[in-house]
Simulated scan of single mutants.
Amino acid sequence: MRKMWNRRGMCRLAMAVAVAVATGLGAPAAQAQGDGPLVFAAASLKNALDAANTAYAASGGAKATITYAASSALAKQIEAGAPADIFISADEDWMDYLAGKGLIQTTTRHDLLGNRLVLVAAADAKTSVEIKPGFALDQALDAAQKGGRLAVGDPAAVPAGKYAKAALTKLGAWDKVQDRLAPAENVRAALALVARGEAPLGIVYATDAAAEPGVRIVATFPADSHAPILYPIALAKDSVSAQAQAFLEFLASPKARPLFEAQGFTVLSAK
């Protein structure tokens, strides 16, 4: 029995590495331990979920193996057969996508967290922008860096990019900047472009900005300029980990709440 579980664990870890390489994030953030669950989570969750994972292991649970990437990339990997136990998306669309394919346990699905959308610049930048209808984001880009581009998650698939496009469209700024984007594979990659000075401005989540000392928040987008930023969580249909349900419940428990709140998330479900 031990040999069978070891073989299964090795296969699951190998698949996690393959997923991480395919999505450009390198090796998984945590190594498999026993029958701890394999979690596929939106890149913006990394700091908070790593902390929750450590706390769960300290309380006696089997530490999860967590792979971080864009929700779109992870959903496609699950569709392709990657053996995830838990999926945490940065929007409802990609969870709906898997639900439509019959690939999640719908009775376990709920909204775990909320977030805010912000405009960021390098920490030492003097950029000042007031986000309002008709605001001249293109002029702000040029003022910060002539011909500079706006770092965003790819609006075609990445949730943060989709929220950014929706907000800019509603505020009347999209048409002037849509050809000046620096689209990234996930929101953390967009954040890095600004932190490294490769883009003068970027649109990310407030929690990402808080986790990166190389950037500062220039302004926050009005909540009514885009759909609510929600992080649904669910067990994958073919989950085989005996610890998956327990880890999912821990993330929604009062013990995990301060770990998410410390990173700036709004906790939507705490049992």
Rank of each mutant, 00 (worst) to 15 (best):
Ala211Glu: 13
Leu251Arg: 07
Val194Lys: 01
Arg7Gly: 06
Ala16Asn: 05
Lys146Gly: 04
Asp96Lys: 10
His110Asn: 14
Gly102Leu: 12
Ala125Ile: 06
Ala58Gly: 08
Ser89Ile: 03
Phe250Ala: 14
Ala143Leu: 08
Val194Thr: 03
Asn186Pro: 12
Asp96Met: 14
Ala99Ser: 14
Val129Thr: 07
Lys237Phe: 10
Val177Leu: 09
Pro133Gln: 09
Thr108His: 09
Asp154Pro: 02
Phe87Tyr: 11
Glu261Asp: 05
Ile217Trp: 02
Gly214Ile: 04
Ala16Met: 02
Lys165Phe: 02
Ser128Met: 10
Gly61Trp: 04
Ala57Arg: 07
Thr127Arg: 06
Arg180His: 15
Gly60Gln: 09
Ala173Cys: 14
Phe40Lys: 03
Glu130Pro: 00
Ala123Leu: 08
Ala42Gly: 15
Val118Met: 05
Leu113Asp: 03
Thr169Tyr: 08
Arg7Gln: 15
Lys126Thr: 13
Leu25Met: 10
Ala192Gly: 04
Glu130Ser: 15
Arg7Glu: 15
Asp138Leu: 13
Gly147Met: 09
Leu150Ile: 06
Ala99Trp: 02
Asp91Cys: 14
Met4Ile: 15
Ser241Asn: 11
Glu79Lys: 13
Arg196Gly: 00
Val267Lys: 08
Asp142Thr: 11
Ala82Leu: 08
Ala52Leu: 07
Leu13Val: 09
Ala29Lys: 09
Leu119Asn: 00
Lys271Asp: 10
Tyr68Met: 06
Gln243Gly: 04
Ala70Lys: 00
Phe260Tyr: 11
Pro28Ala: 10
Ser59Trp: 08
Ala173Asp: 03
Glu92Asn: 07
Gly100Thr: 09
Ala182Phe: 09
Thr67Gln: 15
Ile229Tyr: 01
Val129Lys: 01
Arg188Gly: 04
Leu259Met: 06
Glu198Ala: 05
Ala27Trp: 13
Val21Met: 11
Val204Ser: 04
Asp91Lys: 04
Ser253Ile: 07
Pro222Lys: 11
Thr108Lys: 09
Ala51Ile: 05
Ile217Ala: 12
Phe250Ile: 11
Asn6Trp: 08
Arg109Ala: 15
Ala22Gln: 11
Leu49Phe: 13
Leu268Ile: 08
Ala173Pro: 07
Gln105Ser: 03
Ile88Lys: 01
Tyr97Ile: 10
Leu117Arg: 01
Ala227Lys: 11
Lys3His: 10
Gly148Trp: 05
Ala236Gly: 12
Ala190Asn: 04
Gln31Leu: 14
Lys3Phe: 11
Pro254Trp: 07
Gly202Trp: 00
Leu112Met: 12
Ala270Phe: 07
Thr106Ser: 14
Gly153Phe: 01
Ala125Gly: 08
Gly100Val: 10
Gly61Glu: 03
Gln178Cys: 14
Gln263Trp: 10
Leu230Arg: 15
Phe265Gly: 01
Arg180Ser: 05
Arg7Phe: 13
Tyr97Thr: 02
Ala75Ser: 12
Ala219Met: 13
Ala29Arg: 13
Leu141Gly: 04
Ala167Trp: 03
Ala236Asn: 09
Ile86Arg: 02
Gly134Ala: 12
Ile66Glu: 02
Phe135Gln: 06
Pro28Gln: 05
Gln245Ser: 15
Gln243Arg: 10
Ser44Trp: 01
Ala262Gln: 07
Lys126Met: 06
Ala160Gly: 01
Ala223Asp: 14
Glu92Gly: 08
Met95Ala: 12
Gly61Thr: 05
Pro133Glu: 13
Pro133Ala: 14
Glu261Met: 06
Lys165Ile: 03
Ile203Cys: 00
Ala55Pro: 06
Ala123Glu: 10
Asp85Trp: 04
Ala30Glu: 14
